[in-house]
Structure formats: C-alpha cells, structure tokens
C-alpha cells in the first residue's frame, strides 16, 4: 500500500514537471509579444520605445526562458504560483475563483453524460438491430462528429435567443450585485453550458457501453443465465451491470480530460468565467504564470481521474485485486 502511494506521488511529480516544461517551451515559441498583448493596441502604439522596453524589463519579457522557468519552479515548490499578468492577482487566487465555476460545470456534465450515455448504451444493446438501437446509434455518430462549440452556438440560438429560456452568457445575471445572486441564478446560467457539454460527452460512453453490453449479452455466462430462466434484462442486471460499469466508469474518469478540453471551448462560447476561459485569456496574453498554473491544475485533475479509475478496477474486479495483492 505504501509503495502504491509513493509510486503514484512520484508519477504525479514527473507529470507536473513535464507539463510545466512543455507550457514554458510553448510560450517561448509563441509569437505573441507580452507587452503588446497586455497594454492594449492603442496604448502600445502611443507608447515610446523606452516605455516599451521599461515595461518589458518590468515584466521580465527579455529574461531567457530557462531562467524564467527556474525562477517559477523555485517559487512553485515554495507554494507560490506567481502573479497573473492579465488579472493582476496571484495565480492561486484567480484559479480558486474560477475553479468553482468550472468544476461545477464539469461535474454536472460528467455525471449527466455518464449516466445518460450508460443508459442509452444498455438500451441500444438490449434492443440491438431495432429502431431504438438505430436512433441511439445515429444520435451518437452525429454527436461524435460535432464540435462542442458548434453545439453550444446552436443551443444559444435555439434556447437563449429564440426561446429565451436561458441567459445568453456569463455565470451570473448582468448588472446584479454579487451579494444578490441566488443559487437559482447560478444554476440558470449553468444549465446551457452544462447541457452542451453533457450532450457531447454522451456519444463516447454510449457507444462504448453498447459494444461492451453486446459482448456481455453474447457471453457464455449470459447464455447460461438465460438458460436458467433469466429474462434478458434480468440476466444483464445480475451478471452484466458490474462488468459494464467497470469499463464505463473507467472511461468516464479517463474522459475528464476531454470534458475539460470541451469546457474550454464551451466557456468561450457562453462567456462563462471558468478556468477554460482564463486559459484562453492567458494563452493570448502570454500570461505564463497563469497558463502554467491552469495547466498544472488540470493535469492534476486528469491524473486524479485516471488514478481513481485504476483504483476502481480493483474494487469492481476481484481478479485485478488479487493481482495487486501479489506484488504490492
């Protein structure tokens, strides 16, 4: 058990190290000039050459990238994630503010897409070859081929503009004091982006579950259960769900990265102030500290998702648990 924990902590360290290196490298080859990006176009044009140089000096834009990295890494190890150029606030504070929004959005999308996809997959497998199966399959193929931001735009047009059921963007009503914002307001603003992410996430899990469920339904032990008088649904419930839940849960935890990626686009479309939107802002503003902070946060999140999936394998399947016991 102890070696399990140590092994995974070392892996996480290596991952975060690699992610931060890659982000710094990408920013160093980015053509965006941080000074120009951060003072604004008109101010930049009216600025004297000396002023620009002074700003570049102040922000450390001319410091070699490896030196900046060492400075950043030194501070990061001591718990300081640096200061965001764009938000003029500590990175940890910016991330903390926005993580709440994003995590809420992701959690809703994650749960809804997981449950809906799983149920649709099972349904399609039980009714395979019938029109029910075809409807589910068509839905999934269309959805799998559709980018999240486009669905977001369509939803905006239909539900926010035409029908007016949901607000057109942001996480709280415009012009309302922060103290007056109710939970209902927050949920009302969350609904459309969350729905977009959920609908897109369904395809993967549904098609995966359908294939697995068909495998299970054609397995020898389901055949035997049927021969013992189980109905197809009974057989699948007693003998299939556990076997199906295992890969589905794993896939769902592993797909946290995809949902996160989707949330970046969806937040942009809905002007939803989450981490994704901050990441875009940071990238366009050459805000290395914030960008690397978000990258590390999301890498840790995805790592946690995969780790949970790994542990769940053992919980669901006794054969894997036996394997773990023998070498741990």
């Amino acid at each position: 058990m102890a070696s399990f924990v140590v092994r995974h902590i070392i892996r996480l360290m290596l991952l975060l190290f690699a992610v931060s290196i890659v982000v710094f490298f990408l920013v160093s080859v980015s053509p965006i000039d941080p000074v120009q990006a951060n003072v604004g176009q008109s101010a930049y044009l009216n600025m004297s050459e000396e002023k620009r140089a002074a700003l570049a000096q102040y922000w450390g834009a001319n410091t070699p990238i490896w030196e900046r990295y060492i400075n950043w890494a030194h501070d990061f190890i001591h718990g300081d994630m640096g200061t965001s150029l764009r938000y003029n606030a500590p990175v940890s504070q910016v991330i903390a503010q926005r993580a709440t929004n994003t995590l809420l959005l992701m959690a809703v999308a994650w749960v809804v897409s997981g449950l809906l996809g799983f149920c649709l997959g099972i349904l399609a497998a039980l009714k395979r070859g019938t029109w029910v199966d075809k409807v589910v399959k068509t839905y999934c193929f269309v959805l799998a081929a559709t980018p999240a931001f486009w669905i977001g735009l369509v939803f905006l047009i239909v539900f926010a503009v035409w029908l007016g059921w949901f607000p057109i963007g942001f996480s709280v009503p415009i012009g309302k004091a922060a103290a007056d914002v109710t939970v209902f307001d927050a949920l009302h603003h969350l609904a459309l982006p969350a729905l977009t992410l959920s609908v897109v996430g369904v395809a993967n899990i549904a098609m995966h579950t359908r294939e697995k469920a068909i495998d299970v339904l054609e397995s020898d032990y389901i055949r035997f259960a049927r021969a013992r008088g189980y109905s197809p649904w009974q057989a699948l419930r007693t003998h299939g769900l556990r076997n199906l839940a295992l890969p589905a849960i794993t896939l769902q935890f592993a797909s946290i990265s995809e949902i996160f990626g989707g949330s970046v686009l969806v937040e942009q479309v809905f002007s939803y102030p989450g981490l994704g939107q901050a990441a875009v802002t940071a990238g366009l503003g050459s805000d290395v500290a914030l960008l690397v902070g978000i990258a590390i946060f999301s890498a840790a999140l995805v790592f946690a998702g995969n780790l949970i999936a790994n542990i769940l394998y053992g919980v669901v399947d006794p054969r894997i648990r036996a394997g773990v016991g023998s070498y741990a």
Binding site: D220, H239, N243
Partner: peptide, 11 residues
C-alpha cells in the same frame, strides 16, 4: 454448460 466460463467471473 461445458465449463466455468459460463459463470460470471465477477460474482
């Protein structure tokens, strides 16, 4: 049935 494969491995 023929073999133990006809039992659910997870139950």
């Amino acid at each position: 049935p023929q073999s133990v494969d006809h039992l659910n491995p997870l139950l």
